[in-house]
Amino acid sequence: MKPRTSGSVVRFAAPLKALAQRFSFLLLVLASIGLMMVGKIDAVLVDTVRARVTDAFVPILDAFSRPAATAARFVESLVEYQNVYEENQRLRTENARLLQWRQAALRLESENNSLRTLLKFKPEPGLTYITARVIATPGGSFVRTLVVTAGNRDGVRKGQAAIAGAGMVGRVIEVGEWSSRILLITDINARIPVSLESSRLRAVMAGDNSDQPRLLYLPPESPVAVGDRVVTSGHGGLFPAGIPIGVVASVGERGIKVQPLAELGRIEHLRLVDFGLGSGPIETEPGAGAK
């Protein structure tokens, strides 16, 4: 059996519930009108209540907004990082391209300067010459030599003078079909009849594998001074007279040294001149290579 109290409560609440459902809409309308009237009557009170309610919800709204702001900043950071990465890649590519152009410009400038030095020596009219590029310094039985990109097919012949800058630097000693070997004036096997341009004293310029060849066979007490120009003498049938070679660099107990007019260690292009005198011997004195 159910308790009588529970049944009495149900019987008493049922009419109230039906009454509330019937007049709920009316009650809501009346409540709305009441709130409007209160807002009109006491606006300060309503603003105060609204402010209190807003203050109560601020911590909750702040807590919810923080993760959203953090996520937004993270997304912005990712986008910015991607933009910086793409910009960095673009700059790297551009920098590599500019470096290639710079190397090409420097190479062309060096080649242009090397070719300009050849203009300092002007062969006599009627003489033929070939311009060649230096590709190696192989050494071998001749210590100081150069290999150039011109050979028999280009008209190179053994014995032709090699000119670089303002003076002679050597002679052709080997000729192939596509290349030739140049014996430099500083090689120990090189012997060239020369004379001092000012005094016309004759001598032989001999290489000793150093950067400055020596003058041999000068008469005793010869008036040789530092700065005197050294040119070919025309003797021995090797080269005509008057080709500039160098200047006297030092005069002392260790002999007379000649500084070549051309920088032999930085030669990039040569002019091979055919003076029409034949090949001639490599040495002008017996046993020169042993000195």
Rank of each mutant, 00 (worst) to 15 (best):
E268V: 04
F12Q: 08
V46P: 14
E285F: 15
L27M: 09
E76A: 07
M205K: 06
L35M: 06
S198R: 15
V49W: 06
V194K: 05
I267K: 01
K257C: 09
V230Q: 00
S279R: 15
A20C: 00
S279V: 03
S180W: 05
S114I: 12
T5R: 11
S110L: 13
A43L: 05
N112F: 08
V29L: 15
G159V: 03
A162N: 06
A43S: 07
L146N: 03
V231I: 15
R107V: 03
A206V: 07
R214G: 10
L272W: 12
V226Y: 02
R50I: 10
G155P: 07
V204E: 11
M1C: 00
M168S: 01
S8R: 15
N152V: 01
V49R: 01
A20E: 12
F64L: 14
M168R: 01
M37Q: 03
V172M: 02
G289M: 02
T131V: 15
T70R: 15
R52Y: 07
A164W: 11
E197G: 00
S65T: 04
P213T: 08
G242M: 07
R171Q: 14
L183K: 14
L106P: 00
F64W: 03
Q160R: 03
V224T: 07
R66T: 09
A14D: 08
I245W: 15
D47L: 11
L277C: 03
L35P: 02
S279N: 04
L30R: 14
A203C: 05
V273E: 05
L28T: 10
G139I: 13
D55H: 14
L127Q: 14
Y81P: 04
L127W: 09
G159A: 04
S210W: 03
Q212T: 13
G236M: 02
P67R: 12
I256W: 07
S32F: 05
A20M: 09
V84L: 14
L115E: 13
G287L: 08
S199R: 10
N189H: 15
L30W: 03
S24N: 07
T284Q: 15
V10D: 12
F25I: 15
A105T: 09
S180H: 11
E177R: 13
K2W: 04
T48E: 13
L196P: 06
A241V: 08
S199E: 13
I282Y: 01
V204A: 02
G176A: 14
L146M: 07
Q89F: 00
A290F: 13
W101P: 00
L26S: 06
I163W: 01
N113P: 01
R271E: 11
F275N: 03
A164D: 11
F239A: 07
S141Q: 11
A14V: 02
I33L: 14
P220D: 11
I188P: 02
G170I: 12
A14S: 11
A241C: 05
P286I: 07
Y217R: 10
